[in-house]
Design a protein around this nucleic acid. Structure first.
Lengths: 339, 339
DNA sequence: CTGTTAGCGCCTTCAA
DNA sequence: TTGAAGGCGCTAACAG
């Protein structure tokens, strides 16, 4: 029964607990995992020994032996843009109580960076991985396809996923918002946006918007695009520049709510009456926009839900199905008071 | 040289690569880890074999064998409160390029929940762990003290840490803000806050504020406290209630910037002139507050820095030093335009 | 410069 | 209901 002393770093192992309880390792292991039949009496004795020794399982060893890490990888482009922490919230909500843990990495909107992260994370023998978007480097895609993990590509469903896609069609959302604004009677459109190469989903919405304008026989009169991440400050400044250059705009569409909120602040400061003088429209439906003195008109995406559904779907079944799944979490136009 | 076939799940192992390159496992291992001397010729051959086979290392096995997981645990109370994603940003900034990965968990401001998370995360043989705050359940504390990981307790330095504390003194911050407002001539103070039991650091700031008022021979005239998390909406509503009940307030101190921003929105909507009719003061120095038409007067904490310094300090040295370290990231009063 | 040997701590499989 | 043997994939320590 006796085999060896405890780990060199003084850590308590299964063997130690087994000795303390006068049983074999495997019995302790079984009890700790609720597997196989165990006599209640043994069970109590072992549990007591576990407590007495302060045993902490070693999940590296457990994972190695069972080839199942109970680890979910998550790669998001940013933590500055509030939408991604919200996706993470959803991920953690779905993970809570499952015994799975999240390994989180941030790509800074870089595809090459993402590739490196995919490679590092997969080394953890992930059972599932959540990545942002459907565009990846060729190598990243290959690694994802080849690995044994379930894969969710989240935020967008504008093209085909490897395994599961959870999100919304940004192109359609852009189109619908355009059509909505046209229906409201707006004709003189402006656009304020941020970095496209990084956040290409903003570009998809823009493309959708253009389609809607085109359909109505309209064109964008002017646009201002910042070459960097979105923020309230940037939205404010870009709107100022846009309005300084082009007069007579009806409505300005912003790449997202952060930018639009900045736009609203500019108007408030400059004495421009929202909606009457200039309509403003955002994207995301953030809380902040709805708490403003005049609630922002926008399109609500469902970030929390995206994260939550993605993980729920992935944990549902360990094997990757033959056919990919697309989960459309949709979007709704939030009427607001600014358009 | 030949030993066994590849892993049952079809995954490529070191052995496979070794065979493909005609060397032993350990040689491949050494090359992949840049350890020990290797002939450049062998190196190239092995690297080619790695690429050819699509080898992905198994970090569970690697960690087990070397008793070093290269994993950092992070437990934060919330992802909804923007300050914690900012801490996470700092954590990831410090982790980037180190080969360490972050396992992130969210406690929802629950100490019992935190205890469970500590226990789960430690099973990963963490080399370091970042937890929020200095208050934990007794068991959580014991587990942290006993484990082999370096420990950073972040956000506050109002009491003694186990290993490293990185943050600011919330009590002093509260005191300083109170004194500052008194110096500005404010006398009739109100307070709007959120859940204390959960976010006890807000309470520390409140206590500091009370001390400053007391020192000036003043008292708080009225306060409104929401029994739940902070948000812009809640700040707005609570200020409305407070003002409906108590007239003649000079200044209202909010538990944080989210709440204060909501307060500003209430004023904007209700025709109350900021600073002239009522001064408003926040805490955190969030971007949003500074992008408002009138920048919010507040105290800036340095969340990104907290996360970054914490991880940098932890990775500096693997062994826990005899004496705890306290890193004060400080705070600054942001003058703004609302007080 | 490269290889051999012996685990890391746990779980799977099979036997009792 | 319990146990023994063997191995998961990798690396430390020592040879050569």
């Amino acid at each position: 029964m006796e085999k060896k002393r405890s780990g060199r770093r003084g850590s308590v192992t299964l063997t130690d607990v087994a000795q303390a309880a006068g049983v074999s390792q495997i019995t302790v292991s079984r009890i700790l995992r609720d597997k196989g039949p165990v006599a209640e009496e043994t069970r109590q004795r072992v549990l007591a020994a576990v407590r007495r020794t302060g045993y902490v399982p070693n999940r590296l060893a457990g994972g190695l032996a069972s080839s199942g890490s109970r680890l979910v990888g998550v790669i998001i482009p940013s933590l500055s843009n509030i939408v991604f922490p919200e996706v993470l919230r959803g991920v953690h909500a779905a993970l809570d109580g499952t015994g799975f843990e999240a390994v989180v990495a941030v790509s800074d909107y870089g595809m090459a960076h993402e590739e490196r992260l995919v490679s590092s994370l997969l080394a953890w023998q992930l059972e599932a991985i959540v990545v942002t978007g459907l565009r990846h480097t060729k190598l990243a895609r290959t690694m994802l396809e080849r690995c044994n993990a379930r894969i969710a590509e989240v935020m967008e469903i504008d093209s085909a996923p490897i395994d599961v896609a959870v999100g919304l069609s940004h192109r359609r959302a852009g189109f619908d918002m355009g059509r909505y604004l046209v229906e409201l009677g707006y004709r003189r459109f402006g656009y304020v946006g941020h970095d496209w190469d990084a956040d290409y989903r903003a570009r998809l919405r823009y493309d959708g918007l253009m389609l809607a304008l085109d359909e109505a026989g309209l064109t964008l009169l002017d646009e201002e695009r910042f070459d960097g991440p979105s923020s309230t400050q940037v939205g404010r400044e870009m709107l100022r520049k846009l309005l300084a250059r082009t007069r007579g705009l009806d409505v300005v569409v912003f790449s997202n709510d952060d930018m639009a909120t900045g736009g609203m602040f500019h108007c408030m400061g400059a004495g421009i009456r929202l909606k009457q003088d200039l309509a403003i429209f955002g994207f995301n439906g953030l809380d902040i926009g709805q708490a403003l003195p005049m609630p922002l008109s926008t399109v609500r995406s469902n970030r929390f839900l995206i994260g939550k559904l993605a993980v729920e779907k992935l944990l549902e079944q360990r094997e990757r199905p033959k056919l990919p799944t697309v989960i459309d979490t949709g979007y709704e136009i939030v009427v607001g008071a600014t358009a």
